[in-house]
């Protein structure tokens, strides 16, 4: 439910940004605001606490807006979510907006997990391979996960490409058991 609500809000603001031609800027500001929401528990407690009045919450949020999101559309969206008690959906709205932007710009985001940090050549090879596979520009982020033992696991466009040693050993164990 939260996803559909967030998607409706994201679609609305994306339509405004697309109309104004600044949807990438709006998306970036929206991401920064979402990161602040995720990274600041004090802010979450203040805005979610019913002890504080709506005017007080609005005053707190308005004091942060000029620095984080100078765009008026993003400020209006944040205040609207606060008034309607849906400020908690802000991260989900930021992700949905990002997907809409990527879709608009022909991009795809990939998340690459590896047991050891990858060198630049390997990352470039993986990016190129993913771009060939998806046919879109790949925005790749890398994460180190020692539990993989070795190899690479990639999450891209709703798919999981698992080339880790851990998965191979798991398959080997299943074959031995069966």
């Amino acid at each position: 439910m939260g996803g559909s609500v967030a998607r409706r809000y994201a679609k609305a603001i994306f339509a405004i940004g697309e109309e104004k031609g600044n949807f990438e800027i709006l998306g970036r500001q929206l991401n920064e605001l979402a990161d602040l929401w995720k990274d600041s528990p004090e802010l979450r407690q203040t805005l979610e606490n019913p002890v504080f009045k709506l005017s007080q919450k609005r005053a707190v949020l308005q004091s942060l807006m000029p620095r984080l999101a100078p765009a008026r559309q993003v400020q209006s969206l944040a205040l609207l979510l606060l008034e309607r008690g849906r400020i908690t959906t802000l991260p989900a709205i930021a992700r949905a907006y990002e997907e809409m932007c990527d879709e608009k710009l022909g991009r795809v985001r990939a998340r690459v997990l590896s047991a050891m940090p990858l060198d630049i050549a390997s990352e470039a090879e993986i990016r190129k391979a993913l771009e060939r596979r998806t046919g879109k520009k790949v925005l790749m982020t890398t994460v180190v996960d020692p539990s993989l033992i070795g190899g690479v696991v990639t999450h891209v466009a709703g798919m999981v490409l698992d080339g880790s040693v851990a998965s191979r050993l798991s398959n080997l164990k299943n074959r031995l058991l069966n």
Binding site: M116, S122, I126, I149, L161, D162, G163, R168
Partner: peptide
Amino acid sequence: SMNTDDERRLAQEFVAGFDGPVGSGGAVG
């Protein structure tokens, strides 16, 4: 026994698997 060379080799095998059928280079979910 795992080292950076092995990791690179595994990454190359992973990338090589992209060009072939899905899952040839590793598990694909």
